[in-house]
Design a protein around this nucleic acid. Sequence first.
DNA 1: GCCGAAGGTGAGCGAGCGCTTAGCGTGGCC
DNA 2: GGCCACGCTAAGCGCTCGCTCACCTTCGGC
Lengths: 211, 211
Amino acid sequence: MSTAEETAGGEAQAWGEVTPDAARRLLIAAVEAFAERGYHATTTRDIAGRAGMSPAALYIHYKTKEELLHRISRIGHEKALEILRTASRREGSATERLADAVSSFVRWHAGGRTTARVVQYELDSLGPDARAEILALRRQVDGEVRGIIEEGARSGEFEVVDVHGTTLAVLSLCIDVARWFNVDGPRTPEQVGELYADLVLRMVGAQGPAA
Amino acid sequence: MSTAEETAGGEAQAWGEVTPDAARRLLIAAVEAFAERGYHATTTRDIAGRAGMSPAALYIHYKTKEELLHRISRIGHEKALEILRTASRREGSATERLADAVSSFVRWHAGGRTTARVVQYELDSLGPDARAEILALRRQVDGEVRGIIEEGARSGEFEVVDVHGTTLAVLSLCIDVARWFNVDGPRTPEQVGELYADLVLRMVGAQGPAA
DNA sequence: GCCGAAGGTGAGCGAGCGCTTAGCGTGGCC
DNA sequence: GGCCACGCTAAGCGCTCGCTCACCTTCGGC
């Protein structure tokens, strides 16, 4: 495995849908650079250099630097939404499904920290149209989690006073993992996922065991 | 109250220690600009313009643009630390002190969202020396919260499996308020503070009422 | 074996960046 | 009232940015 593949490349299977090969390499290079330095501090020369190409090559595959961020953001949000949908629609109690949703969502933010960082924190760097599109995806993400919590509250499984506020807090907790998680730190993504699932079940006042 | 004072200026009393007047106006302008666009996307011309001065005036009071960020970050972290210390050292049970710490910390992140955003999310834009100084302050912040949780766990007031992990999660939850809180949204900083204090007490398995 | 499309390069454009410098207005001090 | 220190501005320096353009290589189809 090459050096590049040890960071965003470790998450590279997620970018399998991007073709041709050069376009995918540029996209992965952009994810790494944006995550490290932020969108505005990243130069097109840096992105092209990481992908082993000249600065001009970038513009064969992408119209602007912003298009790169837009593509990354959309693919990332779609992946996040898919993760939550899978957990939300499996069979089981609200408790089981919430635990599943939180642990897999957290695993994605921790394990794919490089990607998640860009997806969650560089939203403001997009133009108005692209931002609006991404915000629509975020509302769907919100809806999936709120759905589970609402169900658990209605059935008496959970004890929640403010469903909207609690949903916000749960998502916020998961998303912020991308900010602090350290690959070289003491915890694996799986461990953080388990810890957070437990904490979230406490937050919603879930009765009894999760599984 | 002027337009400028409605954003970072609403938090302006916090910058009272900065003199002379022109230096303070530049600092407040920088806080607003950094919070809106991010450090790297903010130009020195923008900062000076917001303060009603020419671009060159900035360099009479500050050596570089980075010095502005450094000063903002240090003052902000000192304020955050002071808030947590006050809550941590008051008298009362661990439950009461944790609720107090979380609600006041959250109030600061929500009410002073403009400042908090810069303080919490622009850390990576600092140079190595400045960043190291700020990271030392953050470790102290961490220590204050961990102290309360440890005490509650030791006395049996709380039921916590992983003290370090839970501390991380509690701080993460509070800090991320600066990312999503919207002044025009449905919640006041006080309401979010109360909600979050309740959620955190559930996370640590606190027995009985908070106050 | 020639040809055009696809995908790449090297050089460089105009613009805007952080920051500097020479000089101007003004208020306090003798 | 003369003078100078201080706070500020207008102009612009050197540099790097996002992006473009003229040209080059490679390769499948006939």
